[in-house]
Amino acid sequence: MKNPYEVLGVREGASEEEIKKAYRELVKKYHPDQYRDNPLSKLAEEKLREINEAYDYLMKNGSGGSGKNTYGGSSNWNSGNDSGIFNQVRININSGNIAVAEEMLNRMPNRTAEWYFLKGLVFLRKGWYDEAYSHIQTAVNMEPGNFEYRSTLNKLNNSYRNYRTDAYGRGYNQGPDLCSICQCLWCSDCCCECMGGDLISCC
């Protein structure tokens, strides 16, 4: 296993922010979409898998100095076969092979937080929002400290809010309804009466 800091191209003990930034850039660079019909696609896939593993490792074991002492042990990150499959699932989701990713997940016996998270992503890409939300929610409940799960859940909630903000910006539910018009009239009438005048003569 390679040094995860080297794979991501950051200095040892880099902060979480730095790692995330580097990770995002690398994923963009090696994204399968860039290598469609390209002989280098296998290589890019391999590279992306390495990057994902390194990132997962650093995120799991904490970064910012504390991680640098723990990476050395080679057996540390291969915590079973699952993480390799998860990475392949991620690659498939990113490149749009949703059916393949779903099939792979269905074959896995262990239902960990990551399993629920990835299954949620698969549902989201299929347009099954209800299942997506409850799966990602389960992942967050199982691993409340995981930044990725939580931010994805937030993104779902934001998308819900964004539409409403847009709609309200276009005048949805703006302007007075009948009730507030009556209230306004009644108040004006009271005020006028206080001052000795009258707005609505019958009351």
Partner: peptide
């Protein structure tokens, strides 16, 4: 609440 989320999400995608 749950149905509202699903419906609004779908509307969001449409818009």
């Amino acid at each position: 609440k749950r149905i509202d989320f699903n419906l609004t999400y779908a509307l969001g995608e449409i818009s």
